[in-house]
Amino acid sequence: MTGLQSHDRDELKARYPHVFDRPLSSRLAVPVVIACAAGLFLFGLVALEFSPARMLAGLSQLGWFILLMIPPDPGSSLPTYLAAMGETLSIALLGTTLAAVFALPVSLLAARNIVPSNIFRFPVRRFLDSVRGVDTLIWALVWINVVGLGPFAGVLAIAVSDFGSFGKLFSEAFETADRNQVEGIRASGGNALHEIRFGLLPQVLPVIAGQVLYFFESNTRSATIIGIVGAGGIGLQLAEQIRVLEWQKVSFLILMILVAVAAIDWISGKLRFAIIGRRAVV
């Protein structure tokens, strides 16, 4: 195959001007964006005190830690760790349930098809957004101030931060629900409460149940870390063992977390299929 003849190219240029003569702005856009991104990246590396020497020293340290982690060994504290794992799962389950119970009525207030008035809906939405903007760990710190150290603070922290997410997700579920069934209830003489109970809830509950299970999964992960600030569960043990450099115990705890999260994923996956079927897996 030979290259294009020059008159072919001219002909092509004449026929497809927009391919050959793109305006300068569109031709420069991608390189400029990439250059800016790379520049900011380099600035970040300098500003955040990266240096090859520190990197090398850290990596060699990390290599030592990994060598010391093998084999994972709980020592004599296996029962303590199992209890802590149970505590973590309890925190996740209770926190998710509490959040769902309290978010359900509030999400009704934030749904457009239930509360049509914007004046009322707007503050509710902003309130939910602010609750969501604060990380679970920060809520944990606040609750520790209120109810003291321990897993109960963790339950409340997860409940509050999920309350924000659930409020938003549930209200979206209500908004996408089908109007026709609600109108059917009204046509047969139902009042507003009947409309919600028999027209909306049957449509929305499976979706909500799926989301709650999904959050239970992700909360198992969050519950493993809130212990780091003192709110109970396996994170407390993990942070402690990292601080005293007991690497074999650390690797054992990480393995435990991996196994527990995988198990919960599997169980909740099965439950979600059972509740909502294949069609609407989040």
Binding site: L89, I91, L94, G150, P151, F152, G154, G232
Partner: peptide, 9 residues
């Protein structure tokens, strides 16, 4: 069970 485990008070 979870409530007992999480020392809910």
């Amino acid at each position: 069970i979870a409530a007992i485990g999480a020392e809910v008070n």
